[in-house]
Measured scan of single mutants.
Amino acid sequence: MASQGTKRSYEQMETDGERQNATEIRASVGKMIDGIGRFYIQMCTELKLSDYEGRLIQNSLTIERMVLSAFDERRNKYLEEHPSAGKDPKKTGGPIYKRVDRKWMRELVLYDKEEIRRIWRQANNGDDATAGLTHMMIWHSNLNDTTYQRTRALVRTGMDPRMCSLMQGSTLPRRSGAAGAAVKGVGTMVMELIRMIKRGINDRNFWRGENGRKTRSAYERMCNILKGKFQTAAQRAMMDQVRESRNPGNAEIEDLIFLARSALILRGSVAHKSCLPACVYGPAVASGYDFEKEGYSLVGIDPFKLLQNSQVYSLIRPNENPAHKSQLVWMACNSAAFEDLRVLSFIRGTKVSPRGKLSTRGVQIASNENMDAMESSTLELRSRYWAIRTRSGGNTNQQRASAGQISVQPAFSVQRNLPFDKPTIMAAFTGNTEGRTSDMRAEIIRMMEGAKPEEMSFQGRGVFELSDERAANPIVPSFDMSNEGSYFFGDNAEEYDN
């Protein structure tokens, strides 16, 4: 993207840094990872977990959730003011799984939030270390993106479920800051804005008074975040219109849905970061690795190297396929839920299948599930090659597409044709070009129609051997075009429920 120079890199967003050079960025990201790792080690000690239990991804998720809940100030305040039966607002906890007599047992633990905050700050040299908290939120978000298709949420806001490739980060909490905003897809931002506008339509006082002023500035800020994701002048001009509207209503909703559809071809720039579970960072720190000293990046080879040398386990339900569970977590670790499966298959070195073909449910185990038949197995999170994460949407291309997802959002900077089903997408653009945004709409449609099938995206960008740390010898991959490109292809993934 041309304006790259004016933006802070995501590592800076990730670490609240002012302008830093590459070495400083690597050190501050490393410091953040160190903090998460030290916190995780301490929690495993508190909970008396064995090494194996500490490497269980379900335990990692519970521990991450506990610290996120302990620092969720708004919710904590709300819980104190609106006490609900049987919930102690000062405590947080969740299921911890232990191996007892050759069987997995679930144990519900409860801790004072104050105590968890103390352990977290102690692991982070006394700081609140917001960057580390956001990092864990993005890992949870990436896992949700890989596990669930947001059909219901899309339909509720009037969008087409086939636009799911635009929904990265749709389950990120509001408090995820600049680093969170960077990884949100165009569809996620559109959905947040539509929800806001709908509230304004239904509630006369939404934009009024002292609160209304705050609401208005939040609305304009979200519009600017979305505008910054678009790469064409016409899309940005249309966002200006939406932002400046005196009284946002149905016309703005129409414009936003139009823009979301246009992003299936004229893709937005959305950041991709490899955020790993805390149970990967903990053992690495415990083994003596100093992330701050060595430096770390979320968008280069580092996460690949770390996963190459990590042992992570997962509980497996009786009829689940461990290899499929591994694929789910591998995609989440690489922030690749909406990437082209052919690119992923090449990088991973084994075939990556669409969601609907995987015999696996989510990673988390519900409290009512029976533990008797639970097994555990090693997650295979290694890769054959590594590639640089991208934040450009890439230019655009036609490809055989599917009944489910009709476009992709690249996660890796790797040369390819970008699949999208042009006739299906263009069919949504018939007729409606009147109104105050008509010239911009016409211009956007013209650009979409001009998108050429034979153009290559990320020209000359390749993948790298894991021994090639400096990215000196790019390998331009070859793809098996007979395979499906979309992950949520004609899909039956479970729906995400809060």
Rank of each mutant, 00 (worst) to 15 (best):
S353V: 00
H140N: 05
V312Q: 04
I57G: 00
Q308I: 01
T188H: 13
Q399T: 00
P354D: 07
S28N: 02
G54A: 02
I96M: 14
N498L: 01
K198F: 15
F346R: 15
A336K: 07
T146V: 13
G200E: 13
N142F: 08
I194P: 03
A182Y: 05
W104E: 10
V280K: 12
F39E: 09
E210R: 08
E114N: 05
N370P: 13
E107T: 02
R117P: 06
D302K: 05
Y40F: 02
D88E: 14
P248V: 00
S407A: 15
C333R: 15
D468K: 08
A336Y: 07
L172D: 07
A178C: 06
S274M: 10
H140C: 11
S482C: 04
A286W: 09
D480L: 00
A278W: 09
T424A: 03
G169F: 13
P477I: 11
V285R: 04
Y296L: 13
Q405K: 02
E252C: 08
S297Y: 09
D51W: 13
A237W: 14
E244G: 09
L276A: 13
N395G: 02
R55H: 00
A286T: 15
A27K: 02
N321W: 09
Q235T: 11
K31S: 05
I194D: 08
I347H: 09
L143Y: 06
N211L: 15
P419M: 06
R470L: 13
L307F: 15
N247S: 06
N395L: 07
F346N: 04
H82K: 15
Y296S: 14
A263Y: 09
S310T: 14
S438I: 06
A493G: 04
Q459D: 09
V29A: 03
W386E: 05
G282R: 05
L466H: 03
S3N: 01
A260H: 13
L307I: 02
K90C: 05
E114D: 15
Q415T: 02
S326P: 11
R152S: 03
E469A: 00
W207V: 07
G185V: 09
N492I: 02
K7T: 03
F479Q: 01
P423C: 06
G185M: 10
F304W: 12
L328F: 04
E73T: 04
S377V: 15
R461E: 12
